[in-house]
Simulated scan of single mutants.
Amino acid sequence: MALDPSDLIPDVRDGLTRVERIVLHTLHQLQQERGGRNVPTAMLYGYVVEHVNLSPDEFQRILGRLVGRQSP
């Protein structure tokens, strides 16, 4: 199952794609469950792929963009 092209279109309100929003929402949920502690990347990836089909490379690219370490 590949990503739908519409999943990669930035939202006009904040510039986030659907996939980026899923990553951030999942990260927030896991941080709350862990009492505010950091979430390991592998754990985050495991939970994100329950919602959207991403390769590890795509996931790393999205994380890099969200933290500002990579250009779009």
Rank of each mutant, 00 (worst) to 15 (best):
T41K: 12
E58T: 11
H28C: 10
V48R: 04
G68A: 05
S55D: 04
Y47T: 07
L66R: 00
M1V: 07
Q60W: 00
Q32Y: 09
N38C: 10
I62G: 13
G35N: 06
G64W: 07
L8T: 10
Q31M: 13
Q32W: 07
H25R: 13
D14L: 14
V67H: 12
L30R: 09
E58H: 07
T17C: 02
R65T: 10
V23M: 04
E20M: 08
V39C: 08
L63T: 11
G35I: 01
M1D: 05
D57I: 13
N53H: 02
Y47D: 08
E20Y: 05
S55I: 05
G35E: 06
R61A: 15
L66G: 00
V52Q: 00
P56N: 15
Q32F: 07
M43L: 15
L44E: 08
H25P: 04
V48A: 06
S6I: 10
M43T: 14
N53A: 03
D14M: 14
L44I: 10
A42Y: 08
Y47G: 04
Q32R: 09
L66T: 00
V52H: 00
P10Q: 08
V52N: 00
D11G: 05
L24M: 13
L3Y: 02
G35A: 04
V19A: 00
M1T: 08
L24P: 12
T26S: 13
L16G: 05
L16N: 08
L54R: 02
D4R: 04
S6V: 12
G35R: 08
H25F: 12
L8D: 06
S55P: 05
R34K: 12
Q32P: 03
I22V: 14
D11A: 10
V67T: 15
Q70Y: 09
L30D: 04
Q60T: 06
D14R: 13
A42G: 10
M1S: 09
D7T: 10
G15R: 01
T26F: 12
P5E: 03
